[in-house]
Computed example of a mutant assay.
Amino acid sequence: MDDTVIVRGAQAPNKDKKLEKAMLRKTKWKKIKQYRLLLLMMVPAVIYYITFHYLPMYGVLLAFKDFKILKGIMGSPWVGLDLFRTIFQDDYFYTVLKNTLIISFYKLLFGFPVPIFFALLLSEVTNAKYKRIVQTVTYLPHFISWVVLAGIFFTFFSLGGPLNTIITLFGGDPVLFLADARYFRSILVITSIFQGFGWGSIIYFAAISNIDPQLYEAAIIDGAGRFKRMFYISIPMLVPIIVIMLILSMSGVLDAGFDQIFNMYNAQVYNVADIIDTYVYRKGIVEMNYSYATAVGLFKSVVALILIFAVNRVVKLIGGKDHALW
């Protein structure tokens, strides 16, 4: 009799667990049914990432093989880490790496705060029509290809362009800015900010619009002006978004902007403008050294992944879990 009681007592928790699992399944299916339209909208994006981001990862094998086109990826002989040894023994690779880090750091240092300040300042504008016009105008460059933008900037910075016309009017000598290593990096940073600050400010506009208006009303009653409301309410409330965007930006530290640089640089400025992506393009596409180019690209991806984890860890230690990405 006692044994029967023990067995029944052991079976009861198992039944409860099964019921819990069944309830969880029902809840999941209810949620899937409830959000089926949103999930359906995600399907094209999922297909895109699987097709163009996950399936091509098979090609990473090239970094460890002496690729022969006729033999294919699997038929090509393994070389292990030989290609990586070749990369780190190449002096020019360190020049390319230095250029990439410098240009990316400049873009992050000078370009990252601009959308934040722009969103903060424009959010203080009370004229809705004027605000919409400014937003539309600043968003437009994001949708223009760098091929087109590069043509515009070539004209602007050319010897007969508007900038040199102003310089000559004041008695100066014209300068071929895009072929001068002293100015090229600065031009890259300025044009990059011009192209992206309007689009980058959207997320900050959205965050500002979600701040409780009662906080501003209380500050106005206490006599706080526009700048005080900005510094003591808007900016602190934006900190979580700013931190997340900074962490995500770290993944692009070794991505200095291939489209922009490829369309704007030339042989005269290779020593200050040649980055990892343009180097990979020349090695892989032009010279058809696919294995070497893949190895360089893999190195870049691994470093970017390490940087994301490192910055996220630092944010956790400094600001707590609430400000970290995960």
Results as ranks from 00 to 15, higher is better:
residue 97 L to Y: 13
residue 65 K to G: 02
residue 77 P to F: 06
residue 88 F to C: 13
residue 98 K to F: 06
residue 131 K to H: 13
residue 122 L to S: 05
residue 78 W to Y: 13
residue 129 K to F: 15
residue 111 G to T: 05
residue 121 L to E: 09
residue 118 F to Q: 05
residue 92 Y to M: 13
residue 100 T to G: 05
residue 124 E to G: 07
residue 128 A to M: 11
residue 142 H to W: 11
residue 86 T to S: 12
residue 70 L to Y: 00
residue 121 L to C: 10
residue 114 V to E: 03
residue 115 P to T: 05
residue 108 L to A: 10
residue 89 Q to R: 10
residue 113 P to L: 04
residue 92 Y to F: 12
residue 104 S to H: 06
residue 65 K to F: 01
residue 136 T to I: 04
residue 90 D to K: 12
residue 82 D to A: 14
residue 95 T to W: 03
residue 98 K to R: 14
residue 68 K to Y: 00
residue 111 G to P: 02
residue 87 I to Y: 11
residue 74 M to A: 15
residue 90 D to Q: 11
residue 103 I to A: 06
residue 83 L to W: 07
residue 142 H to K: 03
residue 105 F to E: 00
residue 82 D to S: 13
residue 138 T to P: 03
residue 132 R to P: 02
residue 74 M to Q: 11
residue 76 S to N: 04
residue 79 V to E: 04
residue 87 I to F: 12
residue 98 K to L: 08
residue 136 T to L: 13
residue 100 T to N: 04
residue 74 M to V: 14
residue 67 F to T: 01
residue 99 N to G: 14
residue 134 V to A: 15
residue 138 T to K: 04
residue 68 K to G: 01
residue 106 Y to G: 07
residue 140 L to A: 13
residue 99 N to M: 08
residue 100 T to M: 07
residue 74 M to E: 10
residue 119 A to Y: 03
residue 80 G to V: 05
residue 71 K to H: 02
residue 103 I to G: 02
residue 119 A to T: 07
residue 72 G to A: 13
residue 93 F to D: 06
residue 135 Q to R: 15
residue 103 I to R: 06
residue 118 F to W: 13
residue 116 I to C: 12
residue 117 F to V: 11
residue 85 R to M: 07
residue 95 T to R: 10
residue 138 T to F: 09
residue 125 V to K: 12
residue 85 R to K: 13
residue 120 L to I: 14
residue 141 P to C: 07
residue 81 L to Q: 03
residue 83 L to N: 08
residue 112 F to V: 02
residue 133 I to M: 14
residue 117 F to K: 08
residue 125 V to L: 14
residue 79 V to F: 00
residue 106 Y to R: 04
residue 114 V to W: 04
residue 74 M to G: 03
residue 116 I to A: 09
residue 108 L to D: 00
residue 111 G to I: 01
residue 65 K to A: 04
residue 133 I to D: 09
residue 122 L to T: 14
residue 120 L to N: 07
residue 95 T to P: 01
residue 99 N to Y: 09
residue 85 R to V: 11
residue 120 L to A: 12
residue 125 V to F: 13
residue 105 F to I: 11
residue 106 Y to C: 14
residue 131 K to D: 15
residue 129 K to C: 08
residue 120 L to E: 09
residue 103 I to Y: 00
residue 85 R to H: 11
residue 66 D to S: 13
residue 138 T to C: 12
residue 115 P to A: 05
residue 73 I to R: 02
residue 118 F to Y: 15
residue 93 F to I: 09
residue 141 P to M: 03
residue 112 F to C: 02
residue 81 L to S: 09
residue 90 D to N: 15
residue 119 A to N: 10
residue 110 F to Y: 08
residue 125 V to S: 08
residue 93 F to A: 05
